[in-house]
């Protein structure tokens, strides 16, 4: 089942073409990597899929809903986490969870129950009432991700979720991503760490506004006859 379908997506800013006729589909439950150098058009595409920006033209469906007409339904069915982790630093861990959950219309009891489970899972029960600004970056990142999927969205969009985080924490973060995928949540993730591309079910590599390659990491490596994704990327970008 296709959870995202994109046909002939074009986005222009004046004369500049940020997304030049993109076509791709994302399967339900997969971890879909969206790769590309800075300025290749990744962020523009993810902003369109999440409703932050309108395309110039193209047919796009997210979670089965049309992005022009059914924005409300789309919003209820997606989660989003940006590279800034986007938590309120002057609110506590629980207050952040409660606020974001209430935005998605979860009931008080639901929030209470689910947040206790979440804190146990993240091993953060003792930090329930700590301010976000007192937490290390890795914890904030995990919490931000957990909040992004707290309302059980069909798809979660992650925009460079591992920027500025150390390798061990990045590894642990990917375990959370797999965990979400196992629950049936489709993960759409942009990154510029090529080792992370290996963790994805399929990756698309963007170059100058176009999709230059789209396949599983294994197929891409054999197609370009190289050992790792880093080399695939270098060959495409050249």
């Amino acid at each position: 089942m296709k959870i995202i379908t994109v046909k002939n997506l074009v986005k222009k800013f004046g004369d500049f073409i940020a997304n030049d006729n993109l076509n791709f589909e994302v399967e339900k439950g997969e971890v879909f990597g969206f790769l590309g150098a800075n300025g290749a058009g990744k962020t523009t595409a993810i902003r369109i899929l999440t409703g932050l920006s309108k395309p110039t033209s193209g047919e796009i469906k997210v979670a089965g809903f049309d992005i022009y007409k059914q924005t409300e339904q789309i919003k209820r069915n997606i989660g989003y986490m940006s590279q800034k982790f986007s938590l309120y630093e002057d609110l506590t861990v629980f207050e952040n969870i409660r606020f974001y959950a209430s935005v998605y219309g979860l009931s008080k009891n639901e929030i209470k129950q689910k947040s206790e489970n979440l804190l146990v899972k993240l091993e953060m029960t003792t930090y329930r009432n700590s301010l976000i600004k007192s937490l290390p970056l890795g914890w904030r990142q995990k919490l931000a991700f957990s909040i992004a999927i707290f309302h059980n969205p069909k798809i979660v969009f992650l925009d460079e979720p591992t920027g500025g985080v150390d390798p061990i924490t990045r590894r642990m973060f990917w375990e959370l991503i797999y965990d979400a995928a196992n629950q049936g949540i489709t993960v759409f993730v942009t990154t510029h760490y090529m080792d992370e591309a290996e963790y994805c079910n399929r990756v698309s590599i963007m170059d100058k506004g176009k999709i230059a390659a789209l396949d599983t990491p294994e197929n891409l490596k054999s197609l370009f006859n190289v050992k790792n994704m880093d080399e695939v990327f270098v060959k495409i970008a050249r």
Partner: peptide
């Protein structure tokens, strides 16, 4: 500045 506005705009609010 914090980036929380984006999250709010993506949300059903």
């Amino acid at each position: 500045e914090l980036g929380t506005m984006e999250i709010l705009l993506v949300s059903p609010l």
